[in-house]
Amino acid sequence: MPFKIAIASGKGGTGKTTFAVNLFRYLSQSMPGKVQLVDCDVEEPNDHIFFPEAQFEKLEKVYRLVPEIDQSKCTYCRKCVEYCEFNAIVVIPTVRFAEVNSSLCHSCGACIVACEDDAINEKPEEIGTIRRGFLPSGGRISGGTLKIGSSMQTMMIRELKKAVSGEAPITIFDAPPGTSCPVVAAIADADLIILVSEPTPFGMYDLKLSIDLLRELRKPFGVLINKSGLGTDELHNYLLNQGIELIGSIPFSRAYAGMYASGNLFNDIPEEVAFAFSEILHKLHDRILQHEGDHHSER
């Protein structure tokens, strides 16, 4: 039974990536060959920076389908215009003009259903690339890069997830920040979501937004407090009052922040950070094993 963990946060810069790559490294060492990390932040993919030793395969292009109107068949009936909810089609019968504006098109396929003259065909258009790789120590790492200026984040994430599904029994998704559609796409099928937060007013406000979203989606989640000690206890108390699981706390360490900055996250970790990490990683490791165990006993 595959297990999927998504690492998310409402606010950016809380330490999502730091945690995701640490979790990945830990699990891929304790369960070699069974773990993959998927960087779902397709606007700003960063996870690969921390694994310079990773070997990447050739980039795969991701396409979406954009309709094209065959003017020789078009009768300028404007039915596609009527069907298109995104105002992406311009048809001007008087001058016999019909065109699709691909920047507004959502690739929903409604115009094709609308067209009775078989005048609309779909053509692939590149929206980004997927990069897959593996670490010499085992473990697969992949991610997507959206073309700059494209607004197809959600589709890019869905395509990325489709492309890598089933590559490993345990998957870690590093979600983009925020609470909008792309985040939903990244966490939609996760078995556990870890919200990374920081104990500052901004961190807490954004965490509440994420919690609202996850409750609406009825997803199991827990909260990881990063940079603890930097702000106040308010966040702890809030989680306690709300009955939300605290996955763990990682103390703020200026030295560790400096290490992240240079792209080094794994060597010479300050002791207090290393200790907090190992406790949390152990806990999650046990939980994954338990999940597998549960499944076996069901059989």
Binding site: F86, N87, A88, V90, V91, I92, N101, L104
Partner: peptide, 10 residues
């Protein structure tokens, strides 16, 4: 919500 400009050209 989208494409008001092109519609107006029409």
């Amino acid at each position: 919500s989208h494409g008001a400009g092109t519609r107006t050209v029409e």
